[in-house]
Computed example of a mutant assay.
Amino acid sequence: MMLQQIDHLGIAVNSLDEAIPYYENALGLKCEHREEVASQKVRTAFFECGQVHIELLEPMSEDSPIAKFIAKNGEGIHHIAFRTDNIEGQLKQASDNGVRLINEVPVDGAGGKLVAFLHPKSTRGVLTEFCMPK
């Protein structure tokens, strides 16, 4: 069991339609795909930059975690996601070391992955995600 690499950086935005042109035009990245993740109440857009992806996150409703984040912090970096080959093992390792889990079991996430989050109060203020292809 081990983390394999940084998978993506999640960035909260009010509107994908307004944010995507910045990444495409000013930075020269290409939007690979857009996806709706109903379980997280979010619409996503992904850009590849080397081995790491940028995931834009647009809230689907006012009660979504992303909407709450934007209301409190404004648009910006929301989380860092690490790819793992054993998401359950990573959660156990984190929990065994006193880290508070947001997800005790993985849930379906964007891109056909299983995801689980660690609470930022236990991770020095950084919302941390583990992700693993299904």
Rank of each mutant, 00 (worst) to 15 (best):
G74F: 04
C49V: 13
V37A: 01
R100H: 05
Q40N: 01
N103M: 05
H53K: 09
L56Y: 02
K92P: 04
K113G: 01
Q93A: 14
I11Y: 15
L27K: 08
Q51E: 08
E55Y: 03
I87C: 09
R43W: 03
D96Y: 00
Y23K: 08
L91N: 04
I20T: 10
Q90H: 03
F82R: 00
E62P: 06
L29F: 09
Y22F: 11
K68L: 12
A45I: 04
A67Y: 11
A71D: 12
N14G: 13
G10K: 04
V115R: 10
I66R: 08
M60S: 10
P65I: 02
I80Y: 00
D85F: 02
I80F: 03
V13K: 09
A110H: 09
I102N: 04
G109W: 11
I102W: 01
Q93N: 09
V107P: 08
A12M: 05
H53N: 07
F69A: 07
V105I: 15
I54C: 03
V13I: 10
Q5R: 13
L27C: 14
E62W: 00
N14L: 15
E58K: 07
E75D: 00
H33Q: 07
V37G: 01
A38I: 06
F47V: 03
E58H: 10
H53A: 14
E35D: 09
G112Y: 11
H8I: 05
V99T: 12
H78N: 03
V99C: 05
E18R: 12
Y23A: 14
C49Q: 04
D96M: 05
R83G: 06
F82S: 01
D108K: 14
A12S: 15
K72T: 15
Q90G: 00
L16M: 14
A71L: 10
H8W: 05
